[in-house]
Design a protein around this nucleic acid. Structure first.
Lengths: 230, 230
DNA sequence: TTGACTTTGTGAATTAATGCACTAAGCCCT
DNA sequence: AGGGCTTAGTGCATTAATTCACAAAGTCAA
């Protein structure tokens, strides 16, 4: 069977598409209809050629001499990123961070409703937080099936994070967002994104230190993250 | 005056040093004294040559035929990243996320005590959350000076985030960790790291979508973030 | 219709990051 | 002392990402 060949988009470009998308949303909100690569580049803080190249991976959706249409390009980016539908999310770990994320608007508003939250602590199971009742991590398999969950968010302690990942994978989850400062061991078929707040602060610390050592003459830290490399 | 020339370490390597550091802490906790680049590479999920190259930017701190010493290398990485001291943090935005971060162990335990939290909402100012009283964002200048704050964390709404950044910069802050899904406009002397949870989920969504379109035959998402490029 | 102007899309050059493969150094055993 | 073994450090080839710079393709006004 001849599978429709999906364009191979570089990791670095994929990591920027959500940024562009977010800017396009803002433009739409202010009734802007069209924009040029120069304008988007300025708003995103990147080079205009990079914007054009990134967008060209999606197809040839601009008009020479004119620019790009906000609504049309928004649609194309969403299609490419798989954002034409919602993806249900389960939060594993009902601590401070987990509960805050379960309530967090930013998830739902971008199409990632948190439909379940689980923990392994009997004292937490059964509690209610923002219209969700904390479930048992051992029921994850059923919860994932019943709630049609695609993405797992790990907000457990470091020590529990690998077990949480194993449970998610066992339940069939293929996409994990991990907040625990641990390198998870997972099959290569599973996508893991790590958000380690300590790491981010330590990177800032490096540049802060650098400024002190060089008497403030050094540049600031780079601002954007790429999708990186495993 | 001849400034001591600080080694120029590639961004990608800097972003990995905190990961190595975290693994070294785990090794120390389990009484491991020494390790080889192969072992660290396996734990960090990267190539061994990359580990050696990354560590070589710090200096020549390994012993051929033997490996690296956990405590000594830990010290060197901390020195390089500016982690021989604590850096005080202020959280701007006392919403769900802001309050959760103010309580979050991970910050203090890695040497970034949250010593103040501020908001612009009179209804929130004066409230107490985890031994901190919410201050007024307009007092930021005094707070930053009095509390010797080096890093600002922005957890406001998108619409308030640029104003929050401006206040921080005006108060002399040079390092910002931004959780709002906005590209902040800042002088190049200021370091900004963005943590956009929506972006992370959207990247996962891309690979999830890809798996569906290719019938599950595609690889997972890359796991590590580089320091990226502005 | 034509010509000036704008802006995309992309080959090609450049720069950055990665990973291989080998040399240099040290340990340990006999 | 010497030979075998291990592992760091690094030059070099490769791959990925970025940026330049220009041709192609459109708009618009006269």
């Amino acid at each position: 069977m001849t599978q429709l060949q999906r364009r191979k988009i570089p990791d670095a470009a994929i990591a920027r598409l959500p940024i562009y998308l977010q800017i396009l949303n803002n433009l739409a909100a202010t009734n802007v209809l069209r924009f040029s690569s120069d304008e988007l580049a300025a708003l995103a803080g990147v080079n205009a050629a990079k914007v054009r190249k990134d967008l060209s991976y999606l197809g040839s959706y601009g008009t020479r001499g004119v620019g790009y249409e906000v609504t049309y390009l928004t649609h194309q980016i969403k299609r490419e990123l798989g954002l034409m539908r919602e993806w249900n999310v389960v939060v594993v770990g009902a601590g401070n961070l987990g509960c805050a994320l379960a309530k967090f608007d930013g998830f739902l508003s971008r199409g990632f409703p948190v439909v379940a939250i689980v923990d392994n602590d009997p004292k937490k199971i059964g509690r209610t937080t923002s219209s969700l009742t904390v479930g048992d991590v051992n029921d994850l398999k059923n919860i994932v099936r019943d709630e049609k969950i695609s993405i797992g968010v790990i907000t457990t302690s470091s020590s529990a994070s690998q077990a949480a990942a194993d449970s998610l994978i066992d339940a069939g989850i293929k996409s994990i967002l991990n907040f625990a400062p641990v390198v998870l061991s997972t099959p290569s078929s599973v996508s893991v994104r790590n958000v380690d707040l300590g790491v981010e602060l330590q990177i800032l610390s490096y540049f802060e230190q650098m400024r002190i050592e060089t008497g403030g003459k050094s540049e600031g830290a780079p601002q954007l993250n790429t999708a990186g490399a495993r």
